[in-house]
Design a protein around this nucleic acid. Structure first.
Lengths: 333, 333
DNA sequence: TTGTAAGCGTTATCAA
DNA sequence: TTGATAACGCTTACAA
């Protein structure tokens, strides 16, 4: 039973002027006698008046709202990107409507349509398997959009992500420098773009350092703690003399360190480990995990900035824009 | 340059009917000849028509949107609550507009006003120091709202939070059971409600077990890893024989375990540690940290359910509603 | 410098 | 069973 808010008409009545004058006064558009202005402002404040944005949206044809479809509200990396988005959006007078798809392609589509109904001015989409469909639909609906977090081939819209490939090269090089040998790699899921990019970076760094790529040193870790643990156990039986492990993400790297500890192998003394992502547990582990920091805020800021360009009709740079991951040196390496 | 979406008028034209009929057909309200219905549905699909929700909001006087003001998008506990909110909201056909205040009272107020302008149907507010002001403003504006995550005295609106007090009792009892002595307590910030509730629970459990409350066993930890570390170092110099430590949150508990390890004290053999929150690092530490799980999803779901009641005009139960924290037994205790 | 009135895209009332 | 038409609250010509 929402006590209905005052309308511009009531403000006008109270200030003894017409509605157009109130509108002009409140928006500081067009002429208003200073005297009248103060009277209107006072009336508005007295009534605790706030313009109805849905009405404004109708006539202005814009909501100054950006839709964000995220696969997981609880992921701190993803939400770090949303934070970056939010900052830039706020600076430019835009609001965010954030919705969670839980990674489901169907939901993603449904949400995108809902947002279209809300007349969002632009859409920020975290790439998932369902992304190409949504992109096509939104493009044909004329909604400006930018895809982030992962790269997808031939999408025809700007894309922003971390440079997982280059980051993996850095990590691998570091391990090679410190051990003088080719490190093992605990790989992520084969069907995840970032995991593949990290694998490619590992391979490339190996080659650049004159090592042959040995697939038997690559163990599937599925980006999980337990998987990283078991991968390392398996690795150690096959290569008891290994000195360097590059884990495709922090979680599997942490699992790896646990396996090492259980085997009585000291880290970093005997085996050095490097992870990827820079999640909180990596900072708290013992030893703290050396890792590559995902530039989450920067990705969000870049994506939002690009979207702003699109909305304002700049001709669009597709990128892809890859932001470097920063090496965070800690004790595990 | 948003290619403008088709309107109901265009659908009507294409289907050869009036707009009222299209509206009735699409909303399944009122009579529409089956034949006409299919024709309209087809026309709508052909045009890729989606009703303009801002227009709907104008005439319906409701947006079916709930505003959520969160202090921190990156906090997985908070966002867990938002996830719970989202679930219930979705089931009832509501959408969320999530905005971040970064804990600033001013922003919180500004955001609440913005949301009022958007004509949200209800507001979910994570309690912060600025909350009482916002609550007053929104109440006088007639916006249904529910406060969550922390309890604030005399707010006059429903409140939902975890039962930190009871959880702390459980933790303390567990440590007493296992060590036969009064544990130390690494306290959180004095001005944070949940930290105080946990302290009270600790004190209460002590008393219930016949121990005197000894303030010198309570060390400030400020909810931080490093603070927990230093607190434990200090504690150990004062009480080298301590056998149980209850940390007010996981972060300080993890810091505590690190201090123990550095001192060559084994956990759980020599000293047992219990934390609070159940954040990811607690599961990954060595040993994994026994802790109390914050029922984040449940808090969100409860808050949203209460809000729904308010919106539908039920007479409102203020609560406060305290959801039990669940003991997660791991190896540190 | 101000006010009147025409939309914006829906829904809902009321006649037909 | 359907279609004009009057709202909803605002902005913006256009007139005064």
């Amino acid at each position: 039973m929402n006590k209905s808010s005052p309308t511009i008409r009531e403000v006008a009545a109270r200030a003894g002027v017409g509605v157009a004058t109130v509108s002009r006064a409140l928006n500081r558009s067009g002429y208003v006698k200073p005297d009248t202005l103060t009277r209107i402002l006072k009336a508005a404040r007295d009534l605790n008046y706030v313009p109805n944005r849905t009405a404004q949206a109708m006539v202005r044809g814009t909501t100054r709202t950006i839709g964000v479809i995220t696969p997981d509200l609880e992921s701190s990396i993803i939400m770090g990107m949303v934070k970056g988005i939010n900052r830039v959006a706020y600076q430019h007078g835009y609001m965010l409507t954030i919705m969670e798809s839980e990674g489901s392609s169907e939901w993603e589509r449904a949400i995108a349509q809902t947002m279209r109904g809300m007349r969002i001015d632009g859409l920020l989409l975290f790439a998932t398997p369902g992304t190409p469909t949504v992109v096509r639909e939104m493009q044909s609906a004329g909604i400006p959009l930018v895809v982030l977090d992962r790269l997808v081939e031939g999408l025809g819209v700007p894309q922003v992500a971390a440079d997982h490939y280059a980051g993996a090269c850095v990590a691998t090089n570091l391990l090679i420098d410190q051990t003088g040998e080719a490190p093992a790699f605990i790989a992520g899921p084969r069907d995840v773009w970032s995991a593949e990019a990290r694998l490619k970076g590992y391979q490339e760094a190996l080659k650049a350092n004159g090592f042959d790529y040995d697939p038997s040193r690559v163990i599937p870790g599925e980006f999980g703690f337990d998987e990283g643990f078991h991968a390392t156990k398996a690795l150690l039986t096959r290569y008891p003399q290994i000195h360097g492990i590059f884990a495709a993400n922090d979680l599997s790297g942490l699992g790896s360190m646990k396996a090492l500890e259980e085997e009585g192998i000291r880290c970093p003394n005997d085996v050095k480990v490097v992870g990827f992502d820079d999640i909180l547990p990596a900072r708290l582990s013992n030893p703290p995990l050396t890792t590559l920091h995902q530039p989450a805020k920067g990705i969000g800021e870049t994506a939002m900035t690009l979207l702003l360009g699109l909305i304002e009709g700049d001709d669009c740079q597709l990128g892809p824009f890859l932001l470097p991951a920063e090496l965070i040196r800690r004790k595990s390496c």
